[in-house]
Design a protein around this nucleic acid. Structure first.
Lengths: 225, 225
DNA sequence: CGCGCTCCTCACGACTTCCTCACGGCACCC
DNA sequence: GGGTGCCGTGAGGAAGTCGTGAGGAGCGCG
C-alpha cells in the first residue's frame, strides 16, 4: 500500500486526484497549503509527493527545498505555470517531474508510477550516523548515547534528522523553520534555539561547548561529526 | 564527464542536441536509428539516454524494452506523439521522462539533470571555488584557509558570495550595496570598505596587497582567482 | 478528571555583529 | 605644492542574536 501526499489548494482538483489515486490502490493524504503539507509529510512519510506550486501560504519552491533538506522522496510537481523558468527551478531544486495543468490523468498516473518505481530499489539500505558516543539510526529512529537509548520528542527528532541528512552543511534558520513549522517568518527565532539547546543537552558531552551541533551566528546551524 | 546517448532520426534535431549538450559538458554519442542505438549503447554504456520514439527501423518502445532488459540507465523519451497512450506506454516500459516536441531546450536540460541526479545517489553538485590557500564551498557555506575553517559573519559571507558568483567580473559599489542592504543611496560608501577589509584580513595572505579581492578605483570591486 | 508530556512564548544577561564616524595615505589634477 | 577625491584602517556605541530558565496552553492517556 503506497502512501501518496497530494498538495493542492483547489478542492476540486484535490477531490479528482483523491478519487483516481484511491481507485488505483494508493493511500492518499491530502493538504491544501504548504504548512499542513510539511506537517503531514513529517507525520506520515509518504512514498511519493504530488505538489501544486501555487499554494496560498508558502511558495511551492520553498516546499520542495524544505522536503529535500531531509528526504529523497520522489516529488511530482503539478502546476499551472507553463514557463520554462519555473520548470527548471523546480527540477533543479530536486523535483522529479513537472506536469502542467491541465493534464491527462492517465499520463499523470504513469508518471507517478515511473517516479515511485525509481524510488523503491534503495529503500532497504540502513543509514546510521555516529559521532562522539552517540549513535543515530535514521531508519528505526533510535538514538543511543553511550549505549543507552535516549528519548527524543517529535520536534527534536525532526530537527536532528534535518541536520544529519546534510552533514557538514550549513542550514539556515529559515530553512529549518520552514521544514519544522511551515512558517518562515513571523516566528520567534528563539523557537529554534530552545530545540537546539535540548538536543545538545541530550547529545553533546558538554552542552555549553558543542562540538557537533554547531551554531553559525547570523546564518544558521551545522552538523559535523 | 557524463556520457549521454542521443537517438533521433532527424539530423537537425541531432545537431541541436549535440551542440547544447556538449556546451554543458556532456560527452555526446549519437545514433540515427534503433539498431545503431542499441549497438552504441552496448559499447559505451552511457549514463543517460535521450530517445526519440519515431525511428525508421525499430519502434521506439521496443528500444526501451531492449535497454531495460539489461540496464537501469535513465531514459528520457523525446517524441512528437502527444497522445497520452504513447506516454503511458513509454513510461510504463521503463522510461523515466517523456518530453513532447517541440520542446524548450532549458527544460530538457533540467529534466536531464533530474534524471541523472537520481542515478548517482550522492550527486551533490558541490560548487567549490579555490584560490591561494583558500577553499570556499558555496553549497555548504564553508570557508577553509590553509585547511582550517574560518568563520565569516553573515554580511561577510554575503559579500564574498556575490563576488565569487561573478568571477573576473567587476561589480559596482552600487550593485553590492543594493544586494547587501537594499538601499542603493543614502549610505556611507565606507560601509563597503569595512567589509572588504575584513574579508581580506581573513582570506588574503597579505591583506595590504590583495591579489584576489581587488579594488577598481572609482568603480567597484572584482574577484579574480 | 487529573496527570504527564510536549509544544511554544516570554524575559533576561552575555555576546557578537552591524554600522557610523574620524583620521591618515595615496593618486591625480590644477 | 596644495587641494581634492577615493580608499584603507581603527575605535566604539547601537542593535541584533544566542543561550538559558521559567511557565502557560494543548493534548493524549490512564
Amino acid at each position: 500500500m503506497t502512501e501518496v501526499l497530494v498538495v493542492d489548494d483547489e478542492p476540486s482538483m484535490l477531490r479528482a486526484l483523491h478519487l483516481n489515486l484511491t481507485a488505483r490502490g494508493y493511500q492518499v493524504i491530502t493538504a491544501e497549503d504548504g504548512t499542513s503539507a510539511l506537517n503531514k509529510f513529517g507525520l506520515h512519510e509518504p512514498a511519493v509527493v504530488v505538489l501544486d506550486l501555487g499554494l496560498p501560504d508558502i511558495d511551492g519552491l520553498d516546499v520542495i527545498r524544505a522536503i529535500r533538506t531531509g528526504s529523497q522522496v520522489p516529488i511530482l510537481v503539478l502546476s499551472a505555470r507553463v514557463g520554462s523558468n519555473d520548470k527548471v527551478a523546480a527540477l533543479d531544486l530536486g523535483a522529479d517531474d513537472y506536469v502542467t495543468k491541465p493534464f491527462d490523468m492517465n499520463e499523470l498516473l504513469a508518471r507517478l508510477r515511473a517516479a515511485t518505481r525509481r524510488g523503491s530499489p534503495d529503500a532497504g539500505r540502513r543509514k546510521v550516523v555516529a559521532f562522539a558516543d552517540v549513535t543515530v539510526d535514521l531508519d528505526s529512529k533510535q538514538v543511543l548515547v553511550a549505549g543507552e537509548p535516549v528519548h527524543l520528542t517529535r520536534t527534536e527528532w525532526h530537527l536532528l534528522e534535518l541536520l544529519l541528512h546534510n552533514p557538514e552543511k550549513l542550514i539556515t534558520s529559515r530553512q529549518l523553520l520552514i521544514a519544522l513549522r511551515g512558517q518562515p517568518d513571523h516566528t520567534d527565532p528563539s523557537y529554534l534555539r530552545i530545540y537546539m539547546a535540548q538536543l545538545r543537552k541530550k547529545l553533546e558531552p558538554d552542552p555549553a561547548r558543542p562540538k557537533h551541533l554547531l551554531t553559525e551566528p547570523g546564518m544558521g546551524y551545522r552538523f559535523t561529526s
